[in-house]
Design a protein around this nucleic acid. Structure first.
Lengths: 156, 156
DNA sequence: ATCATTGCAAACCGTTTGCAGCCTT
DNA sequence: AAGGCTGCAAACGGTTTGCAATGAT
């Protein structure tokens, strides 16, 4: 099942209505490599087909965020679809949704990490500082393998 | 040397002028437990002594940020003084200033971590994904030891 | 004396709110 | 048929810009 279908199913199950603007936003996010700003979402939708109101985009994104179907990228505030498929593999509770992202500064693509060695690190930090850690935000920025290879080409 | 003095010295060395508003913002940040929003900075300054214009606060904070004397907390956008004293201990380049914070949701205090086991984790992630990591953002949210103890009291 | 910096007013822009009409259920 | 959702207009609030006055060097 595709991301958009899965997300729509979640909304439906929770009593939301499946509207054309909601479907279109979800499909757009499904196709997007990285994350999109609210403005980018509006522009892309307007360009593709009949326009969607800016206010509606705000409300749709809010709704998707409330239902943990999208999240905001920490460093940019842009909107990204959640990785619904693999989220179950993550050993955290629902609400503590972890989004550890590898963000390519070149192509903007985002690779999601699903709780790597961070738990160990977190335990270690907690032990050393006595801090009671409830949540964490982690983001790596750099170059994805493809862009890193391309950048290598320039120098060659 | 105190934070404010140190920061002013940096500005002076770089050709900026040492003005009263700049000094006052730095002293305020020096005394603050956690991070302050632009609005909080303005209010606190107004309350303490003669008022400072909102616009000036914006410009002063921009200046301090440009010179790596303050940074914004990732999750809240609030302003925090950089830990100039201990920054040298961090094995990273100047521009890659790391701000790994432990933020107490109760009292708002912030404890800075200086590159703990993260480098190992980062290497591991890089190895597994092929991603060329240039920068990272890490933030832990929870309770500081003191607030955690107090919260324990309530339950007892 | 010079020129960076401040303060004030106004512009700007992203986001939110209210409400009527539409469309999903 | 009912009411959630959208679109439009207007309000709102945080941030930026222009410019004259001030103050640091």
């Amino acid at each position: 099942m595709s991301y958009a279908e899965q997300a729509l199913a979640v909304l439906k199950a929770r009593g939301y209505r499946i509207t054309r603007p909601r479907r279109r936003v979800l499909e757009l996010l499904q196709g997007a490599e990285g994350a999109l700003s609210i403005q980018e979402i509006k522009e892309l939708l307007d360009r593709a087909e009949e326009p969607v109101d800016m206010v509606s985009v705000y409300r749709i994104v809010d709704c998707l965020e409330d239902n943990a179907l999208v999240h905001r990228v920490l460093s940019t505030g842009k909107i990204r679809r959640c990785d619904l498929e693999n989220e179950a593999h993550c050993h955290r509770e629902q609400h503590d949704h972890c989004h550890h992202n590898l963000i390519c500064r070149e192509c903007g693509s985002i690779t999601e990490l699903h709780c790597p060695g961070l738990d160990t690190l977190q335990d270690e930090v907690a032990r050393q500082t006595g801090f009671h850690i409830e949540e964490h935000n982690l983001e790596f920025l750099g170059l994805c393998p493809r862009c890193a290879a391309r950048e290598g080409d320039f120098r060659a």
